[in-house]
């Protein structure tokens, strides 16, 4: 997540101080990615050092205001014009865990999949409820929050579909169940007999 660009975007609207930037960020993303106030201040220092924001001094309440510079505005335009590039395959702990589970003797991979499935469904239930509440309130200022929730729902859905896929793949690779093999054989014999007699 680019804190640097998020702060610049918010400063493009008007001058703001650190705490206010954090509040605004959390409001528009529904506190999905909590921002540490320390991160805000260190990022502002770096932005100032790089000439992307300028310190506009402190008001009588002690708030230190920052303003975006021309170079900062150009940086924002560039950020919106550039796709978010996944750093060569993004680290996915679940994929790593399943890969290791498959190659480690004695690990019940089906159980690993099911444990994850339950957890992801419960997470998604929370997102869906939150979105229904936001939909019902139907406030224009909540639009970004609702879209963030949709993004989380789609990610959870993708993960669940991938888990289904893993399970199906694993069961097709597994040895055929002897009972099912016997049933199939019996059915095949019956079909052959039916064909022969007709």
């Amino acid at each position: 997540m680019s804190i640097k660009h998020s702060l610049l975007v918010m400063l493009q609207q008007r001058q703001r101080y650190g705490f206010e930037l954090r509040e605004e960020f959390e409001r528009s993303t529904g506190s999905t990615w909590p921002l540490n106030i320390g991160q805000v201040y260190t990022t502002l220092d770096r932005l100032e050092r790089d000439g992307l924001v300028a310190d506009r001094g402190t008001d009588d309440q002690g708030h230190r205001y920052y303003e975006i510079t021309e170079a900062g505005r150009i940086e924002v335009v560039g950020w919106f014009a550039t796709p978010v590039a996944p750093s060569t395959p993004p680290r996915n702990e679940l994929a790593i865990k399943l890969a290791l589970a498959l190659s480690t003797p004695g690990v019940d991979v089906d159980a690993v999949v099911q444990t994850q499935r339950i957890s992801t469904i419960q997470t998604m239930q929370g997102y869906v409820r939150a979105r229904r509440e936001a939909d019902r309130a139907n406030k224009a200022e909540d639009l970004s929050w609702r879209l963030v929730l949709e993004s989380l729902i789609y990610s959870a859905e993708a993960e669940l579909k991938w888990l289904d896929h893993c399970e199906a793949k694993m069961s097709s690779m597994a040895k055929p169940d002897p009972a099912m093999a016997a049933g199939t054989a019996a059915l095949a014999t019956k079909t052959t007999q039916t064909k022969a007699s007709s």
Partner: peptide, 18 residues
């Protein structure tokens, strides 16, 4: 029935306080 999820009681806790 091989598994089932628990009844959801506090979905809000999944997200940071809002």
């Amino acid at each position: 029935i091989v598994d089932q999820t628990a009844l959801q009681s506090d979905p809000a806790s999944l997200l940071a306080a809002r």
